[in-house]
Design a protein around this nucleic acid. Structure first.
Length: 558
DNA sequence: AAACAGAACAACCGCTATTTG
DNA sequence: GCAAATAGCGGTTGTTCTGTT
């Protein structure tokens, strides 16, 4: 910590002449309580002293009495916070140690944004500290295009969360489980969504797009993003969705024209829809709940994006996009078909740019060739040459199925590069590790057998070195992985399963109708029927778009 | 050296849960 | 049982510092 405003270490504050806290006027204004103007803003050493003295005499608690008894012009809330975060004894100051950082990551993977509970595991640390650290970390990793969690942590959390969500062991022996069980789906930690991605072969997405906000917003129905200050993830996500559609005509040949409507998709509707999605999300990956899974994968794009668009609309200018994004954007060299009206969305590519373009100057682990695959596929599909799958071929002919099949490989490939080794510390290849964690292939190997995540100490390399791929490596990777765009994976995965999903669509529709409630169910049914009759044959995604205008009319934006 | 962007931190706000009268 | 007070939590914002251009 370079600055310590508390503890009288900050000279700026301490030099602030405060003759009487009673009369001092806060720089940030203040509220009136009982005729006393309560100060806001940074605490002064004098105030600290008063508060400390008060606590010595009266102990903690009854914070509103502080102002009455000590004359401190602070509200009780502020006093409590000041004491808890800065003045109470045994507070640990300074930067987090590696052990602490690792613990935070683990705890966050288990608990989500339960800062206070996390702080309970970190003696001397406050929830605020942890929260700030985490938010900073998120931002940093987002910019770096790195996953929020080391894969092991994700897997472990997923595993544990799954156990917790299994409703079979609700005694909550593990705090994390307990948390999950206690929280509604509305509060499911982001990691679950990431974990879902992982389980569905989408984890590269998490690696590529550290869009916690997206997952959290999705899970929370986007009502109030816990990462509201990180608008970029939201925007990235929505842009990605657009781009995915754009790049994959097969996914949305009718979609392009619908974009304006897409943009107008309104909060109210999508909020409810996404909430409904979130209801089933935690259980989606459960192979026994196929319907919800299939639904969620797709409506993810629909609801989330739609909502995000509307939700972010008023603050669209607050995007926190990495500054490098636009300058690096070069659609032409990407081989994208044509300039799109929504060119602003192009910046999403930067998150997972085509290998050829970026790898030289952006040696990011996210650079796994996804976009190459997407672009090639888009080209192929655009030219009406729906090539049959050739899984032995490289990314240029990657099919959605291939993508989905191989996406799992990307997990480790991408993320383990973070640690400079494609072989996990566990002795598994990343793909094998992933497979072991994939419910479908539940082979008996479980994370329980894995060493704890302490094996990831290397993860905390601040410089976050990434591997620079050679063309050969890239080619090899592309052939294997095919995709690194989360949305692409999302949709690809879904695409791959679409045939099965369509079979289940009637049942699924009913289930979703139940989830959505009456008002939305009609919309959904309409969408679903549209999908079933669509010649695109991949169900919800396209049908959603096709039916979007109706929704938009319902929720016309100002 | 100045301007700028990003990081780090502190504090506030709003909401919810719990306690108390 | 109810309302007010209190405590706690999580999200967000504002400020300051630091590094880079």
């Amino acid at each position: 910590m370079t600055r310590l405003i508390s503890d009288g270490e900050d000279t700026v504050i301490s030099e602030d002449p405060i003759e009487s806290p009673l009369t001092e006027k806060g720089d940030g204004g203040g509220s009136v309580n009982g005729g006393v103007v309560l100060k806001k803003g940074p605490w002064t050493t004098a105030e600290d002293a008063i508060l400390i003295e008060y606590v010595k005499k009266h102990g903690e608690g009854n914070w509103n009495a502080v102002q009455k008894h000590s004359g401190l012009s602070r509200c009780g809330k502020s006093c409590r916070l000041r004491w808890a975060n800065h003045l109470r004894p045994n507070l640990k100051k300074g930067a987090f140690t590696q052990e602490e950082e690792q613990l935070i990551i683990e705890l966050h993977a288990k608990m989500g944004n339960k800062w206070a509970r996390m702080a309970a595991h970190l003696p001397g640390r406050t929830d605020n500290e942890i929260k700030n650290y985490w938010n900073t970390r998120i931002k940093r990793r987002q910019r770096a295009g790195l996953p929020l969690y080391p894969p092991e942590v994700s897997f472990q959390a997923m595993h544990e969360n799954q156990q917790g969500l299994n409703f079979s062991g609700m005694d909550g022996g593990d705090q994390g489980h307990c948390d999950l069980l206690q929280t509604s789906s509305y509060d499911i930690p982001d990691v679950i969504f990431d974990s879902l991605k992982s389980k569905q072969g989408i984890i590269p997405y998490a690696a590529e797009l550290p869009d916690t906000a997206v997952s959290s917003m999705l899970m929370k129905g986007l009502g109030s993003s816990q990462y509201g200050s990180f608008l970029s993830p939201t925007t990235h996500r929505q842009k990605r969705l657009r781009e995915t559609v754009t790049l994959l005509p097969s996914y949305g040949s009718n979609v392009k024209s619908e974009f304006p409507s897409f943009d107008q998709f309104q909060e109210d509707t999508c909020d409810r829809v996404s909430r409904s999605c979130s209801l089933s999300f935690p259980f989606g990956p459960d192979p026994t709940v196929k319907n919800s899974e299939s639904f969620n994968e797709n409506p993810d794009g629909l609801c989330l994006s739609g909502h995000e668009l509307s939700a972010s609309k008023p603050v669209a200018m607050k995007l926190e996009l990495p500054s490098l994004q636009y300058p690096e954007t070069d659609l032409g060299s990407w081989g994208t078909s044509s300039p799109h009206p929504l060119l602003e969305s192009v910046d999403t590519f930067i998150q997972s740019p085509p290998a050829g373009l970026v790898e030289s100057n952006c040696p990011s682990p996210r650079n796994s060739g996804l976009l190459d695959a997407l672009l090639h596929e888009a080209k192929n599909l655009n030219s009406g040459k729906n090539q049959s799958s050739d899984k032995s071929s490289n990314s240029s002919s990657v099919t959605p199925g291939d993508i989905a099949d191989s996406s799992a490989l990307n997990v480790g490939e991408t993320e383990w590069e973070d640690y400079g080794d494609t072989l996990s510390p566990l002795g598994h290849t990343s793909s094998s590790l992933f497979n072991e964690c994939t419910p479908i292939s539940a082979s008996g190997s479980s994370l329980d057998e894995h060493p704890p995540v302490e094996t990831f100490t290397g993860y905390y390399i601040k410089s976050e070195p990434v591997e620079i791929r050679t063309p050969d490596r890239e080619k090899e990777t592309n052939g294997q992985l095919g995709i690194s765009d989360p949305d692409g994976l999302l949709t690809s995965e879904w695409f791959e399963q679409s045939s099965v999903h369509i079979k289940d669509q009637v049942t699924m529709t009913d289930a979703i109708v139940t989830l959505l409630g009456d008002d939305l169910s009609n919309d959904y049914k309409q969408m679903a029927s549209g999908a079933s009759t669509s010649n695109q044959g991949w169900g919800l995604g396209s049908c959603s778009w096709n039916n979007m205008p109706a929704v938009c009319q319902m929720t016309e934006l100002p």
